[in-house]
Design a protein around this nucleic acid. Structure first.
Lengths: 348, 348
DNA sequence: TTGTATGCGTTATCAT
DNA sequence: ATGATAACGCATACAA
């Protein structure tokens, strides 16, 4: 036993021996438990750095029954497609901002998210199984489509989860969301204040709550401004969808002078079509988008848009999740609604 | 002992009892070890599903000494900045494609990457420590800036890693890369074949190998076509950088009729400036980008560009990594170079 | 082919 | 305040 060969990685035992104390004491120092003699703490700390010790995650979480990490789950489209669609889901500028917010909150706390994509029934099964194996203590979930069964599946499996956006059907989970109606009102107010008289809107897929709320909020605000009728065309939150919708709108409302697109991607598409049709933006038609995504600044003119503070929302999601799975697991649910702001650029 | 209270999660022992066999046998069935009676396999499998058993990751990796997961590390800018810069790193369309490729390879194998951002000296320390704790068996690393110390740090720590792009200084690691010079040649050939006579280029930051190679390759090919002189302006791979470079080029080469931008973002910026200056694309000036990123299709006209198969490259990185850390860990290093292709759209 | 027994590195419960 | 010691759930060497 004495001639122990050099192991790849030092263990608690090694540190204890080097410090001349017991494993238990070293463990206490590492976990910041008080009731430990300051002098001994020092000796232990020195031994730790001299041995180059790092705790073994597996051993630790075997006994604590906690993984000490969380998952970032992106729940994509239906359950039929393959790689192409995946590229689109993660390629969405929206995803980068979510990831950024989550990482931004976790990183200073020495944690890192597990990235999972649930874009098919099979993938969803896998995600649930993976989490149940204890790879992560909970999940931050962002669904890109309505009627995603995953939130309910996670809840049913007893896995702590926090959603981005209120679930279509009530569910005992925490979530963060945006005051979409207020955001749409901001857009309406701005267009009206600018002097627009014939305003139309391009909507998102109306089965998505956010899209429906943005439309409702826009309608409400326009009505208050004395514009009870607001022509609309349905888009699908993509640039191509925005182009199609804009083309349709130009046919039925050739003299429109203001447009509210339910997201920036569609606004960008609309910009292209307007230009092709010889309409100047913002002089002939003022355009307001939604999200303040990277597309907003990539456009010419840059988009005036309703800013959704995605990074902060994602950080808050993470905070809520850690509240549920942390040292003192709270069982409370919470929903936090963020207020949008208007970012004025060149398009309106 | 008989009155064991119902635990939250069934263990191997529970399954063994239900199946009337020993833990070892159940373990064998789960891990697909042969030498197990088919009839018994069946009984065990039934017991597994009836108990709802899922293996405990911590216990398993404690004994196997493998995490069974890998990290996707994005190594961002210097070591000074905070959240803003992080948003930019992960918000880059490039990142989404990398993530997509990694997830695409891992997901069918029941694995999911740990997402880590190393954008400061402190963050890099953390990343290394985290990996050393055994949270992941290795890392797929994409550095966005030259002279990133992380690759060397990982190697030194004995952590298996695969890089995106050849490291500036030789390092015993595997990597995937693109034949940048060939890509630039594709662009040159296309512009010349199109009839361009006065061609300029916007380069990336030349301390980045890829940027230098693209410039060198472009110069070489143009020289072969009888154009020994190619004016250039330095960009920084951002849209704004592209705008500045284009403006500068327009000053010194007002009659240029062809442009090669070292990436799509800069090409997009160039497009805007060209339009502002009344130049029509592609009629007056033909523009070729590089990457085939989402920006390429968002532009009007859409960009003709050199496609970099990022998703496949990322998948290959992951494959190489799994080769090193899998069941039979190979110790071999490898580098795989991908060939770019030209995607012709409206801009040239 | 199957079962028994041991150890992986920690934390936590006891004594002391 | 510190030190023994018992789990935690699994894989595997060895015995049968």
């Amino acid at each position: 036993m004495g001639d122990r060969v050099a192991r790849d990685s030092p263990t608690l035992e090694d540190v204890a021996r080097a410090a001349g104390v017991s494993r238990a004491t070293v463990s206490r120092v590492i976990n910041g438990i008080r009731n430990v003699d300051p002098a001994i703490q020092d000796v232990v700390r020195r031994a730790i750095s001299s041995t180059g010790y790092v705790p073994n995650r597996a051993a630790r979480s075997l006994v604590t029954r906690k993984a000490g990490s969380v998952a970032l789950v992106v729940s994509g489209a239906g359950d039929d497609e393959g790689g192409e669609a995946r590229g689109e889901v993660l390629g969405d500028p929206f995803f980068g901002r979510i990831a950024s917010g989550v990482v931004g909150y976790l990183s200073p706390r020495g944690m890192h998210p597990l990235l999972m994509l649930a874009d098919s029934a099979e993938a969803r099964r896998q995600v649930v199984a993976y989490l149940r194996q204890g790879h992560a203590d909970g999940a931050v979930l962002v669904s890109t489509h309505a009627a995603d069964p995953l939130p309910a599946q996670l809840v049913e499996a007893g896995l702590p989860a926090v959603l981005f956006a209120r679930p279509p059907r009530p569910l005992p989970v925490s979530y963060v969301d945006l005051a979409h109606r207020d955001g749409a009102r901001l857009a309406a107010d701005h267009l009206v204040a600018r002097g627009c008289r014939r305003v139309a809107t391009i909507t998102g897929p109306l089965d998505v709550l956010a899209a429906a709320d943005r439309l409702a909020g826009f309608r409400e605000a326009m009505a208050r401004h004395g514009h009870p009728y607001v022509p609309d065309a349905a888009g699908d939150f993509t640039q191509e969808g925005g182009e199609r919708a804009m083309a349709a709108l130009l046919l039925t409302e050739p003299d429109l002078d203001g447009l509210f697109a339910a997201n920036d991607l569609m606004a960008q598409g609309a910009l292209h079509v307007l230009r092709e049709h010889g309409r100047r933006v913002p002089d002939d038609v003022a355009v307001v988008g939604f999200d303040d995504s990277s597309a907003a600044t990539a456009c010419r003119p840059a988009l005036t848009t309703v800013r959704q503070p995605i990074e902060e929302m994602a950080a808050e999601m993470t905070r809520l999740l850690l509240d549920r799975v942390g040292p003192q697991p709270g069982r409370s649910l919470a929903s936090v609604i963020f207020e949008p702001t208007l970012v004025v650029r060149g398009s309106a």
